[in-house]
Design a protein around this nucleic acid. Structure first.
Lengths: 144, 144
DNA sequence: CGCTTATTGAAAATCATTGCCAACAGCTTA
DNA sequence: TAAGCTGTTGGCAATGATTTTCAATAAGCG
């Protein structure tokens, strides 16, 4: 259920210790992490927070568009704080997981164009670019 | 483990009733289906085949690049027979699930470019375009 | 302060997918 | 055609992320 503004007025969202802690931990890292990892980070920092709460909040934040989500190859959902409000995509290192945000005006237009050509409207898209970052590539050469 | 061509020679892949049935069912539809749906189709057609086998084979086919895979929003893996060997992407209708294959030379280049700019090598990418197809859009207007 | 209700979170439930492994069946060779 | 080797099958248990349940807790309001 979505909190809807009924006759009685919009229900307020409450500020809790857990929400604040989560927001804080999310702000600390630029990398995509699983709910479990985020929970561990919270606990390791001394916070007392349930895994369920982390899941609930992350989902809520994702629905609100405040965090980006991503599917790991094994299906896990990865979360990361969204820094820019504008539409963007990610380039992720398959080795170390580091991600870089990139603008993609070109893809936006491409997606719009091919979809329109196929008769689709109200188009949305998902783009994921994975590669090996410079550092990892170098490390790889050294050991190979 | 991958079947590797060792000193004893490459191990042959055997043609079984199940593999043939699966291939046949996969060839029947152009739409992405879950392993469970595919299994149901097989059973409903009178074939006797285990769900585990369907999973195994689909995974093998996917790894061999003979079927395209896709993640449903809820994490399920969807499979579809790959028709063209060349790299391509999909435009999918969020309402009826119909998919259209599109070439994407423009995106390929874009992905390569932005990744390279960020210092990444050995770049790969995933693109998903979703929209509402002409038919569904029309139906929507009619009922709204 | 007291009340309403959003939020929390432990535990159980869900469910797609994988692991296990003994029985089975292609294919090859005798 | 028969025997053997080994790829394949498939029922069932295991895995593990995510969701649901729901009673206890606590934020924010008057």
């Amino acid at each position: 259920m979505e909190p809807e503004a009924g006759a009685g007025g919009a229900r307020a969202s409450r500020s809790t210790r857990q929400k604040r802690a989560l927001a804080s931990v999310m702000a600390e890292s630029r990398r995509f992490r699983s709910a479990q990892e985020i929970h561990e980070a919270l606990v390791g920092r001394g916070e007392s927070i349930g895994l369920t709460t982390v899941y609930n909040q992350l989902r809520a934040l994702a629905e609100a568009g405040l965090v980006d989500t991503l599917r790991a190859p094994d299906g896990e959902i990865l979360y990361r704080k969204c820094e820019s409000n504008s539409h963007h995509h990610h380039v992720r290192c398959r080795s170390c997981g580091r991600t870089v945000e990139v603008k993609g005006v070109a893809v936006e237009r491409w997606a719009e164009r091919v979809a329109a050509r196929a008769g689709f409207v109200d188009v949305d898209h998902t783009v994921e670019v994975v590669g090996t970052c410079a550092q990892c590539a170098g490390r790889h050469f050294a050991s190979a």
